[in-house]
C-alpha cells in the first residue's frame, strides 16, 4: 500500500498555499510534485512523495526509540551464543 518515495526539493513555484508545486530530485530524476500539503517545506528539504503529492517533510533526527534500539542491542547481543545472522 502506498508507495511513497523520498526526494529533495530543488525548486518551488510559490502561489496560494494549496497550489504550491515544486521540482523534486529523486536520485537524478526530477519530477514536478504538489507541495500543497507541506506549507513548511523549503528548497533542500526531503519530502515523501505519494502519487505526485508531498505528504511529509522528512526529519533528520532519529526517534528516541530508535536510538534506544541500539542501546538495547548491546544488552541483547551475545546473550545466546551460536546464533548466526
Amino acid at each position: 500500500m502506498c508507495l511513497a518515495i523520498p526526494g529533495k526539493i530543488i525548486s518551488i513555484q510559490e502561489g496560494e498555499p494549496m497550489d504550491r508545486t515544486g521540482k523534486v530530485d529523486f536520485g537524478g530524476i526530477v519530477k514536478e510534485v504538489h507541495l500543497g500539503y507541506v506549507p513548511e517545506a523549503r528548497i533542500g528539504d526531503y519530502v515523501n512523495i505519494h502519487a505526485g503529492f508531498a505528504i511529509a517533510v522528512l526529519q533528520e533526527a532519529e526517534a528516541v526509540e530508535i536510538l534506544q534500539i541500539y542501546a538495547d542491542m548491546n544488552k541483547y547481543s551475545g546473550m545466546r551464543d551460536g546464533l548466526q545472522c
Binding site: 508507495l3 518515495i5 529523486f26 536520485g27 537524478g28 530524476i29 519530477k31
Partner: peptide
C-alpha cells in the same frame, strides 16, 4: 543499476 534508473524504478514501483 544506475542511481537514476533505480530511482525511476522506485518512483513507479
Amino acid at each position: 543499476v544506475r542511481e537514476d534508473v533505480r530511482a525511476a524504478c522506485e518512483l513507479l514501483g
